[in-house]
Amino acid sequence: MSETRCTQAQYDAITEAAAQWCMRLHEPDCTARERDAFAAWLNAAPLHAIEYEAMLEIWGVSEHLSRPAPAPAQVTGWPRPARRSRWQRYAVAAAVTLLAIPVAAYSGWQLGWLPNAHERYSADASTRTVTLPDGSQVELNLGSQLTFSNYKDQRRVTLGKGEAFFKVSHDAAHPFLVQAAEGQVRVTGTQFNVWMYEDQVRVTLLEGSVLVTSNKRLSGDGLRLEPGMQARYKAGDYAAQISPTAAVSSELAWRSGKLVLDNLTLADALPLINRYLDSPLSLADSATGKLRIGGVFNTRQIDRLVSSLPKVLPVNLSRNAEGRTVLGSRAPL
């Protein structure tokens, strides 16, 4: 069945089948034979994979999952989700299965299970400014991805990777949540920047106030930031580290296409540099990490910064057994 010749009835049938498979595969008693049947269905037509991927995203949103859903091609070795009560499983499954029906979608919205708007945004080789459905504006740095979901009681953004600057429309009754790694930023209306690399996150506040937690599953509202302050956390931190920052302009220099390294150790600078590299750098040892670097660099030409490092610092570039570029100290000439 080709995607271009698909009738509305056929398309609806594929969507319903994708929902049913999504529901069944998340059940703990799903058999190996059923998974084989699913694999055959998934590979029968390109539209099957497209619709199933969309259904996985809806499932993830409806369950408030913090981990990404598996890609459609991964049809074996599926992780089994934590066991939930029967009524929860059926409620979510019904919402997913009947999402195309206005009444079910409306009920899901009223109960706070499903959003009435869900959008995905990305920026690749250039920065991008987008306006979210609630009127908030977001600037995306190079190589950044985020999704926006509008629920009855909150607005939720998930920063998948990269960096974003937010100008949030004020709505005290409808808080704005940004999820990054294991933590969360909660606001009603303000301007702030969120930087993420792997499991490290930095939140810099420009205007207003925000509440930052290093793990959104922990109780409490988190730590409050005031303008000119920054919060840092990584996976496993019990609480974010809060500190004043006099370098707000440096933190936001990416909006002008610049990376500012203000006399940082290589250990601190590498995550900022690696954010722009397809193949990240690593340090040979702690002594190399203590060397300092400063300067202003073009974010679209970070590879030139890497190649110039041996010219400005006593380091060598080499490759390890995994093929990654390694920075190691060398004796000064």
Score class of each variant (00 low, 15 high):
N215M: 02
P271T: 06
L218S: 14
M1F: 14
T97C: 13
L99V: 10
R33I: 09
S66M: 12
C22H: 09
V138R: 01
S136W: 00
V103D: 10
P227M: 09
M23P: 02
Y151E: 00
E182S: 13
E226Q: 13
H64C: 03
N193Y: 05
T127F: 00
G220A: 02
L309E: 03
W78H: 12
G222Q: 04
D221F: 01
K234T: 11
L252M: 10
G208T: 03
A100C: 04
K258H: 13
V201E: 02
A45M: 09
N320Y: 02
N116K: 15
S318M: 06
T245D: 08
Q10T: 06
V201W: 01
A54Q: 15
R35V: 06
I273T: 07
E3F: 04
R84D: 11
L333G: 14
Q10H: 04
E198G: 08
A172M: 06
V260T: 03
A39L: 06
A39M: 03
V306M: 06
A45P: 07
A267D: 14
E322L: 14
D285M: 06
L65M: 13
V296E: 10
K167Q: 14
H170I: 02
A269H: 01
S318A: 12
A117N: 12
F165K: 04
E119A: 10
A104P: 01
V178F: 08
E63V: 09
V178W: 10
E57Q: 15
T245M: 08
N215E: 11
S279K: 14
N141E: 09
G160C: 01
A40R: 13
A9M: 06
R330I: 14
A287E: 15
L225H: 00
V201R: 00
T213S: 12
L206W: 10
G108C: 02
M229E: 15
E51V: 01
D278G: 11
R84P: 00
C22G: 11
I14V: 15
L211Y: 11
Q20E: 14
S282N: 12
P115Y: 03
N116Y: 11
W41P: 03
V210W: 00
R224S: 07
R155D: 04
P28H: 07
R319P: 02
A73R: 12
A267W: 10
R330H: 10
R80D: 12
P332Y: 09
Y11Q: 15
T127A: 00
A235H: 13
G112S: 02
S85F: 08
A69S: 11
E163Q: 14
A94R: 09
G295A: 07
